[in-house]
Every structure is written in structure tokens, then in C-alpha cells.
Write a protein that binds this DNA or RNA. Structure first.
Length: 646
DNA sequence: GTCGTTTCAGGGAC
DNA sequence: CGTCCCTGAAACGA
């Protein structure tokens, strides 16, 4: 090639764009590596280019991105990407020099962590036109900053998948400083305590069993106390379900992490589930026909055992749950719920009718035989005669993990018909035709709808990499203006996005000003963040000394007025499904926290994403007048424990 | 990606 | 109360 051609500005621009694309792909790969539990979110367009991104940046917000009645914000996601691309470049050097392969493994943490992988360096800001403007606002907590900067070095020694900083480090706790210094913090102790070993296995040995029981009893006591002190348990069944689910997930992650160290990571879901069951950490123990308190239609589950601990479907393996005849004092068994794994159901798009195959006759350990009218099959037959309601759980492929399924609670059905049929292996099976009760909220139908939408771009884009996508959609909520939701299911703990915008000094910002309508103010973490610590006692670990009082206010405001991303559309809710965490990109002295959003619970598709804005007024625990208190806004979140304003 | 193998648990029935 | 047995799914490797 002619050397002079290399100086052609068009070629340069092209190369630059190609390079950005390559970086984008690499970034996706990296994000896949580091995100929690292989569950990546963050949508990155396959045809990313910087010019497109800057076009979006320059475009006024809320304009010209409407497609097919839906406001698409794909471009803004690319802004997200750009903001992280450059930090990735930085961390690349670090990754190469890093001798510990563990560093690249997915982060699985019990307590909220602050991943510091993307070593963002303010120095690079001048080299690239960043879409996220991170400005020095002021130097603060100079003594604490030293502690912070020493933390990542320490973390490197620990067998942590990612360098991680606990919240307590981002929010230094002056009142506890003498007792909870960095030295005391052991997220993943090198020296494994005896009690830190794997959770007690089910065992038939008498002596072992006794010891285990005693241990479990003591755990139960301390845990119940903890749960009682947790405000949400008294607030209603949905909060209880939330607590149980959160605990399960944090426990599962921790077990996975501990098992990984021992090179034996198998069925952490079952281990976590069993541990919780043994400690009575479950709800809706008594089987009931009809709705389960706290579980809504459309709720999603990523493990069968999750449905056991919330009482939606008790059997760990079997697909049909039924009430035992003798327990009810009657001479018939009745079905309670079924799980349709998708093997036999009819393939058409009718979301109201389900043809379900009975159980039995298909054992791999025994000879196959005809199904008998017993157990679940009998229960379903009786329920058909009685015209009883059956809870139905349907399943779908996890779009982010090919080998796993997602279970969707689809509400109540009635059995209309039943007949015998021949299976492929020649043996006869029972078939049941179920029809969904009318007037129920959308369940599986939402999934079918999204499936169709997702098919469209796939036809348009050819040889496109099947990366991890999270398709965001900005939608009109009605009374609360624009809101944000996702077409894809989101796992608890998954990374959602960063709050992009100008960082401003809170002290010099009047939040009552109208121009700060789109602004993030780092106020207090909801107490719900602390729930991620609840499972720690089950593994007999000391949970971190993170309390709501210890979380200080971050003195920053991020304005998304002139530049921003989808995060600006996140609305407030007093019962949010997202939480934010300040993330230290860099590890030098010039560190500025970035605000990252993570899913607090499993979020079904098309559910509005919200976080707790905290309060604009005087935060709880502050006596007297708070200097930065603003006028309160009325809250329209509509949750049962709404505070009324924020 | 697909197939086969291994391993795990709750709870009804007795 | 203890034990058997029935029930698939998650994870991993070939």
C-alpha cells in the first residue's frame, strides 16, 4: 500500500472506527469475563461506531429515536460502551502483567462489592473525547483516601476473582475506624476457618448428624434474630419473598466461590437451597391451592430450588406438586402446581392453553413402562374433576446462558381435558389440557411477544456475533414521565449500566434548579443493600460491619442534562429493583467514584427498572438542619411501603 | 452446539 | 421417626 495513503484522513477515520469496533468486541468479551455469574448485561450494538455515538451525544435527548412506537435508546448504550472502552484499555496492561489467573474469573460476591477492574485513568481523558465527563470536583477525605488506595493491593493477595472493594471502603466509617480498619476486612480470608468449609452435607452418620443439628440450631437462632430486625419481614409477603430470594442468591454465589477454591463447584444452587431449608429459611411452607402470597404472575426463577423455598412448587425434581390425601383428611390427592419444562407442550403461540404430560414411566434407572394413574397423575385427574385451580410454571431458554432455563410463574389454570397418548418410546402417557384463567396479568405471553421482536433484528443483521445483550427500552409511564425497562430477563446481581453525565460538586449545586431534572444524587443506600449480607451467618462468616449509619453521603451530583445514557430515565421507587454502587475505576490518588447500577433481584422482562433515589431532604440519622436538603417531590411509585416523597 | 454422564434433594409412602 | 423410592435438572466434559 502506498505510504501516503496511510495519511488519508478518510482511511484514518476508517481505521479509527475499526479499532473502536475491535475494542468494543474485546470489551464485550472482557465484560463477559468479569460480570457476575456469567450474567452480563449491557447492550452493545454490533455496528458500533464513534461517529454514531457522538451523533447521539449531540442530539437532544428524547428526540428522533422512535421506532415502531417504541423509543429506542440503543445509541445511548453505545455511549456507555465508549465510557468504559477506555478504562478497558487501561486495565489491559494490568491484566497482562497479572500473574493470577483467578483475577479474570467472574465475580461472585455475597456482600456488595465495588469491582475496580476498569482502571479508569483521568489521564486518558484528553486523548479521547469521552462521552462521560469525569471532572475533579474536590479533594476530600484525604486520610481515608490513602486507605482506599492501599486496598486494591491487598486484594490482589486474596483469592478474589476480581479486585473488589467493599462498600465500607468507599464510605469510610470514622466512628468505627479503630475497630474496622482495612486490616480487619477479610472478604475472602486466605486462611480458611474450619467453619468456613462446605456447608454440612446431608449425612446418615449419627454422630455427624447430631453435630450438624446443633450447629444448625444455633445458626437458626441467630439468623431469625437478624431477619426479625430486618424491617421488611413485617411488611408483607412480597418483601419476605424478596428477602428469601436475595439470601438464596447471595448464599449461592458465596458457596460457588468457596467451592471454586476447592475445585469442586457442583450444584451450588442445591447446596444453598438445602442450607436454607434446614434452617427454616423458607416461606409458604404449607401447600395451598391458588395464588402463593408474595409471588406475582410473571415472576421469574433461575433454579428449581428457588421455587421450593418461596413455596411456589415444593418438589425439588418432580414436575407435579400435589397435596397429600391423608394430610387433608380426605381420600383424594389434589394437584397444586405444575412445571412445564417445554418438552411436550404444544408449539403454537397460544399462551392460554397448555398440554401437559403426566409423570412416571420414564426412569433411566429402571425399565420404561406405561404411566400409572398414581401420585401426580392421580392428583391432576382429581383436580380436573373438582375443577380446581392449578398454578402453572412455564420455562424458557435463558438468553444469556444456553445451558440453563428460566422459570416463569404464569398464573392459574384449570384442567379442561385429559386423555391417554403414546409417547415416542411406545409407552402410554397421560395428557392434560389446561386453560389459563381469564383476567390474569401477563405471564408467558410477554416472553412470546419479546421473542417476536427479537427475531426482527436478527433477520436484518447477518454473521453478527451473538454477544450478551440487554435490550433496553425507554417507555412512557404516564404519571411519572419516561421510564426504563428491559426486554430481557435480568438476574439478581447483574450489571445494568452506569450513570453517565457531568460530575458536579454537590455543595455548589442547587438541586431545586430545574436544569437538574435529570441528575443523579448520591444519597444514602437503601437498607435493602444490606440484605446481601444476610446469608453470611449461614456459612458462619462474620458479615461486614456495614450498616446504614456507616454509609456516608457521597458528596457528588451527576448531571445527565447535556450528556448521559439510559440511566437518566431510571425512575424512583421506594421498592426498587436496582441498587447503585460507587465504583472506583482507578487505584491512584485521583480517584472518582462512578455510579453503577446492579439488579437487586431477578427482574422479568418489560418490568420497569427503578432505584431508590434516597431523599432530597434531610437524610435519616442526621440531626438538625441538613445543609443540602431540597424540596421534596411527591412519590408516585405506588408500592405498599412508599415513603410518600423523595 | 449437542450429547451423554454424574451428582444432587424434597417429600410422599410405608 | 427412619428409610425407601420417585421425581429431573444443573453442570461439565467428550
Amino acid at each position: 500500500m502506498d505510504a501516503s495513503a496511510l495519511n488519508d484522513p478518510r482511511l484514518k477515520a476508517l481505521m479509527e472506527e475499526e479499532r473502536t469496533k475491535a475494542l468494543a468486541n474485546e470489551f464485550v468479551a472482557k465484560l463477559t469475563d468479569v460480570c457476575w455469574d456469567k450474567c452480563i448485561t449491557g447492550s452493545i450494538g454490533s455496528s458500533f461506531s464513534r461517529s454514531e455515538a457522538s451523533r447521539f451525544q449531540q442530539a437532544p435527548p428524547d428526540t428522533n429515536l422512535e421506532i415502531d412506537g417504541r423509543l429506542m435508546v440503543e445509541y445511548s448504550l453505545r455511549c456507555d460502551l465508549v465510557s468504559l472502552l477506555f478504562t478497558m484499555e487501561n486495565s489491559k496492561v494490568e491484566a497482562e502483567t497479572d500473574v493470577q489467573p483467578l483475577e479474570r474469573k467472574p465475580l461472585r460476591s455475597l456482600a456488595p462489592m465495588l469491582p475496580t477492574t476498569f482502571g479508569y485513568d483521568v489521564e486518558t481523558q484528553s486523548a479521547y473525547p469521552m462521552l462521560v465527563f469525569v471532572m475533579p470536583f474536590r479533594r476530600c477525605f484525604s486520610s481515608e483516601r490513602r486507605q482506599q488506595s492501599s486496598a486494591p493491593m491487598k486484594m490482589k493477595q486474596a483469592p478474589v476473582p476480581l479486585k473488589a472493594t467493599p462498600i465500607s471502603m468507599a464510605f469510610p466509617v470514622p466512628q468505627h475506624e479503630h475497630e474496622t480498619s482495612d486490616e480487619d476486612y477479610e472478604p475472602f480470608p486466605n486462611q480458611k476457618k474450619p467453619t468456613l468449609q462446605k456447608p454440612p452435607k446431608r449425612t446418615r452418620q449419627v454422630g455427624d448428624c447430631d453435630a450438624g443439628n446443633i450447629k444448625r440450631r444455633s445458626i437458626r437462632r441467630s439468623l431469625n434474630k437478624d431477619l426479625v430486625s430486618c424491617p421488611s419481614t413485617s411488611e408483607g409477603p412480597s418483601e419476605s419473598v424478596e428477602v428469601i430470594m436475595t439470601m438464596f442468591d447471595s448464599l449461592r454465589r458465596r458457596i460457588l466461590q468457596l467451592d471454586e477454591k476447592e475445585d469442586a463447584c457442583r450444584r451450588a444452587d442445591l447446596k444453598a437451597g438445602t442450607l436454607m431449608m434446614q434452617n427454616g429459611l423458607r416461606i409458604n411452607n404449607l401447600k395451598i391451592i391458588g395464588p402463593v402470597p408474595g409471588v406475582e404472575i410473571g415472576d421469574i426463577f433461575f433454579f428449581r430450588i428457588e421455587m421450593c423455598i418461596v413455596g411456589l412448587h415444593a418438589p425439588a425434581m418432580a414436575g407435579i406438586d400435589y397435596i397429600c390425601a391423608k394430610n387433608v383428611g380426605k381420600d383424594e390427592t389434589l394437584a397444586v402446581s405444575i412445571i412445564s419444562s417445554g418438552g411436550y407442550e404444544n408449539d403454537d403461540d397460544d399462551t392460554d392453553v397448555l398440554v401437559y404430560t403426566g409423570q412416571g414411566g420414564n426412569s433411566r434407572h429402571k425399565e420404561k413402562h406405561d404411566q400409572k394413574l398414581e401420585r401426580g397423575n392421580l392428583a391432576l385427574m382429581n383436580s380436573m374433576k373438582k375443577k380446581n385451580l392449578i398454578r402453572v410454571v412455564r420455562s424458557a431458554q435463558d438468553p444469556f446462558c444456553n445451558s440453563s432455563k428460566i422459570y416463569i410463574y404464569d398464573g392459574l389454570y384449570k384442567i379442561e381435558d385429559s386423555w391417554m397418548d403414546k409417547a415416542k418410546n411406545g409407552f402410554s402417557v397421560f395428557k392434560y389440557k389446561l386453560r389459563r384463567e381469564p383476567g390474569q396479568p401477563d405471564g408467558i405471553s410477554v416472553w412470546k411477544m419479546i421473542e417476536k421482536w427479537n427475531r426482527i433484528p436478527q433477520q436484518e443483521i447477518t454473521v453478527s456475533q451473538k454477544g450478551a445483550y440487554l435490550n433496553f427500552e425507554v417507555f412512557w409511564t404516564g404519571d411519572r414521565g419516561w421510564g426504563l425497562r428491559s426486554w430481557d430477563p435480568i438476574r439478581a446481581g447483574a450489571f445494568i449500566c452506569e450513570y453517565a453525565g457531568h460530575v458536579m460538586d454537590e455543595l455548589h449545586t442547587n438541586m431545586d434548579d430545574k436544569e437538574h431534572e435529570y441528575a443523579f444524587q448520591a444519597s444514602w443506600f437503601g437498607y435493602k443493600v444490606l440484605k446481601w449480607n444476610l446469608g453470611a451467618e449461614l456459612l458462619e462468616e462474620v458479615s461486614g460491619n456495614v450498616t446504614t449509619e456507616s454509609l456516608k453521603k457521597l458528596p457528588i451530583v451527576i448531571s445527565a442534562k447535556d450528556s448521559g445514557n439510559v440511566a437518566r430515565f431510571l425512575n424512583h421507587s421506594c421498592s426498587p429493583n436496582l441498587l447503585w454502587q460507587p465504583v472506583q475505576y482507578d487505584h491512584g490518588d485521583d480517584s472518582y467514584p462512578h455510579i453503577m447500577f446492579f439488579a437487586m433481584k431477578h427482574i422479568p422482562p418489560m418490568t420497569e427498572l427503578t432505584y431508590d433515589y434516597g431523599t432530597r431532604g434531610t437524610p435519616p440519622g442526621v440531626k438538625g438542619e441538613f445543609p443540602n436538603a431540597c424540596k421534596l417531590k411527591p412519590c408516585l411509585c405506588g408500592s405498599t411501603n412508599c415513603r410518600g416523597s423523595f
